Simulated scan of single mutants.
Amino acid sequence: MRPRLETAAMDAITVRLFETIDEDNMAWIMAADSALRQAMGGALIDLTPSYTTLLVHYDCRRLSFADARKAIEKALTDLAPAESQNGTLHEIPVWYDESVGPELPLVAQRAGLEVDALIERHCAHDYCVFALGFAPGYGFMGLVDKALATPRLKTPRQRVAAGSVGIAERQTAIYPLRSPGGWNILGRTAVPLFEYAKKGEPLLRPGDKVRFKAITRAEFEAAGGDSTPLEERP
């Protein structure tokens, strides 16, 4: 692996470690995150890890571009993958049902599975949180079993309910608040991701893992979940 540095702005540098998305990348990404935070010290404004890159935003009043580049290059010398990502494993309870997950039968049919088998397969993997984006608290996770990979909807919905759990290609995610969206919705969780994000403490962070757990409607509603059906068509 040979890191590549790319100018992102007058006070930001993108560190590109990989060209393709892979769960194994995150051990390297998180090792780079730790090394860069230590190297940049008080000059660091923000550091954003993602699928294959890290964005280093620094204070150009304290560090010139040339010096920032040198500090980054030095920090990445002899970089080794982290033995442990030190991320948190989150168990997210999900009510899988066609009323709140209209694409549940579609994704099952495409995969050649019964709906119950699809749910079991979706819950069988600990998904890596690759990046945060789109909306506060929204974590892009993967990689979904190839058999479950499903293209985005041709026409996005104007309103996807908060807590909706969906699949797009080989990624899965949870909508933290009501918003437009084109992912295939399988169910809904009552975990208030947006509330965590509002406090500046997002529940999901890059390097974390998420394990989905199927629950009943009664359990979902007892946890404060909104069981209002989601429209079937966008």
Rank of each mutant, 00 (worst) to 15 (best):
R2Y: 02
R4S: 13
R4Y: 01
R4M: 10
R4P: 01
T7C: 00
A9F: 08
I13R: 01
R16Q: 14
F18N: 12
T20D: 12
D22C: 05
D24C: 01
M26L: 13
M26D: 05
A27Q: 10
M30A: 04
A31M: 05
A31I: 04
Q38H: 09
A43Q: 15
T52W: 03
L54T: 02
L55V: 14
V56N: 00
S64T: 15
K70I: 04
A71V: 03
I72K: 00
E73G: 14
A75F: 10
L76E: 11
T77L: 06
A82S: 15
E83F: 01
Q85Y: 00
G87Y: 09
L89R: 14
I92D: 07
S99P: 03
G101I: 03
P102H: 12
P102E: 08
L106P: 00
V107Y: 10
R110T: 01
G112R: 12
G112D: 07
L113H: 12
E114K: 15
E120L: 02
R121E: 08
H122L: 03
H122Q: 12
Y127L: 08
C128N: 04
V129G: 01
F130V: 02
A131V: 05
L132R: 08
G139M: 09
F140N: 07
V144S: 11
A147H: 06
A147V: 10
R152S: 07
K154C: 02
K154F: 03
P156D: 11
R157G: 08
R157Y: 05
V160N: 06
I167F: 04
I167N: 05
R170K: 14
R170Y: 00
R170A: 12
T172M: 04
R178N: 12
P180D: 04
G182M: 06
W183A: 12
I185Q: 09
R188A: 14
R188E: 09
T189G: 11
P192L: 12
Y196K: 01
K199Y: 00
P202I: 08
L203I: 07
P206K: 07
G207N: 01
R211Q: 14
A214P: 10
R217G: 13
A218D: 15
E219A: 15
E219M: 08
F220C: 10
E221G: 02
A222N: 05
L230S: 13
